[in-house]
């Protein structure tokens, strides 16, 4: 079962100003995830200001500058983990929250 762990960044929260990715703690944690067979994917995202919005539902594709939603909270990065059940995923996310100093959301992928 795969779970998406979303990193919730908050631009108004000064306490989380230090970079999430690239810090030694996060690297070591990712290494451990990989070694234990949980890690599917991990990446940090650039700031929402770098986003573009695409809509090709009509006659022609329309490209506009992003982000899609202006909000103080935004997606800062993500993990995808493979875990046998939610409790294991939550435990991994609890460690992840500590090492990246952010609030996280854990959500299952649709299980096909």
């Amino acid at each position: 079962m795969q779970y998406l762990i979303s990193v919730l960044d908050d631009e108004s929260d000064e306490s989380t100003a230090d970079a999430a990715d690239g810090s030694g703690d996060v690297d070591a944690f990712n290494e451990r995830l990989r070694a234990d067979g949980y890690l599917v994917f991990v990446a940090g995202l650039d700031s929402p200001a770098t986003a573009a919005v695409v809509d090709n539902r009509g006659d022609a594709a329309i490209f506009t500058d992003g982000p899609y939603v202006e909000s103080k909270e935004y997606l800062g990065g993500l993990w995808i983990v493979e875990a046998p059940d939610l409790d294991v995923a939550l435990k991994l996310a609890a460690e992840a929250s500590r090492v990246c100093n952010r609030k996280l959301e854990v959500r299952p992928f649709v299980d096909e």
């Binding site: 939610l86 409790d87 299952p108 299980d111």
Partner: peptide, 14 residues
């Protein structure tokens, strides 16, 4: 079911 909330007694730690 979807999130696979487990059917078990939690670890001693939790």
């Amino acid at each position: 079911k979807a999130a696979r909330i487990p059917y078990r007694v939690p670890d001693t730690e939790d």
